[in-house]
Deep mutational scan, measured.
Amino acid sequence: GEDLPLPPGWSVDWTMRGRKYYIDHNTNTTHWSHPLESGPSSG
């Protein structure tokens, strides 16, 4: 998808195989999909 801006506290990194993933430092979790690309989340 597009390179959307990341929310505060997020960063992007790549695996050893070159796969892009996103790090949420607020909750110390990692995600394969961009936080703003996922569907609407409630709460």
Results as ranks from 00 to 15, higher is better:
residue 29 T to S: 07
residue 2 E to K: 11
residue 19 R to L: 09
residue 10 W to D: 01
residue 14 W to F: 14
residue 22 Y to D: 00
residue 33 S to G: 08
residue 25 H to E: 06
residue 30 T to D: 03
residue 39 G to Q: 13
residue 11 S to V: 07
residue 10 W to A: 00
residue 17 R to C: 15
residue 32 W to S: 04
residue 41 S to D: 11
residue 7 P to N: 00
residue 30 T to V: 15
residue 20 K to L: 08
residue 15 T to V: 03
residue 17 R to V: 08
residue 9 G to E: 01
residue 23 I to V: 08
residue 17 R to M: 14
residue 13 D to I: 08
residue 42 S to F: 13
residue 2 E to S: 11
residue 2 E to M: 10
residue 4 L to Y: 09
residue 2 E to T: 12
residue 36 L to H: 07
residue 26 N to W: 06
residue 29 T to G: 02
residue 25 H to M: 07
residue 16 M to T: 14
residue 29 T to R: 06
residue 24 D to V: 02
residue 15 T to R: 02
residue 20 K to A: 05
residue 10 W to M: 00
residue 3 D to C: 15
residue 36 L to T: 06
residue 34 H to E: 02
residue 27 T to I: 00
residue 33 S to L: 13
residue 4 L to F: 09
residue 8 P to T: 07
residue 16 M to S: 15
residue 7 P to F: 01
residue 35 P to N: 02
residue 26 N to M: 07
residue 3 D to H: 10
residue 30 T to M: 13
residue 40 P to N: 12
residue 6 L to V: 05
residue 41 S to Y: 07
residue 13 D to S: 14
residue 25 H to W: 11
residue 3 D to R: 09
residue 35 P to K: 03
residue 29 T to K: 06
residue 7 P to L: 03
residue 23 I to E: 01
residue 10 W to E: 00
residue 19 R to A: 07
residue 25 H to P: 02
residue 12 V to F: 13
residue 25 H to N: 08
residue 30 T to L: 14
residue 10 W to I: 00
residue 3 D to M: 09
residue 41 S to E: 10
residue 14 W to I: 10
residue 10 W to P: 01
residue 26 N to Q: 06
residue 37 E to A: 14
residue 21 Y to S: 01
residue 1 G to E: 12
residue 14 W to H: 09
residue 26 N to S: 09
residue 25 H to A: 07
residue 7 P to Q: 01
residue 42 S to H: 13
residue 24 D to S: 02
residue 14 W to S: 06
residue 7 P to D: 01
residue 10 W to V: 02
residue 43 G to M: 12
residue 36 L to K: 06
residue 16 M to P: 15
residue 23 I to S: 03
residue 2 E to F: 10
residue 38 S to L: 12
residue 18 G to H: 04
residue 19 R to H: 14
residue 8 P to M: 08
residue 1 G to K: 12
residue 36 L to M: 10
residue 24 D to G: 01
residue 5 P to R: 08
residue 7 P to A: 02
residue 27 T to N: 08
residue 22 Y to H: 00
residue 19 R to S: 06
residue 28 N to A: 07
residue 6 L to Y: 03
residue 31 H to N: 03
residue 5 P to G: 09
residue 37 E to R: 12
residue 32 W to L: 05
residue 21 Y to Q: 02
residue 8 P to V: 07
residue 25 H to I: 05
residue 16 M to Q: 14
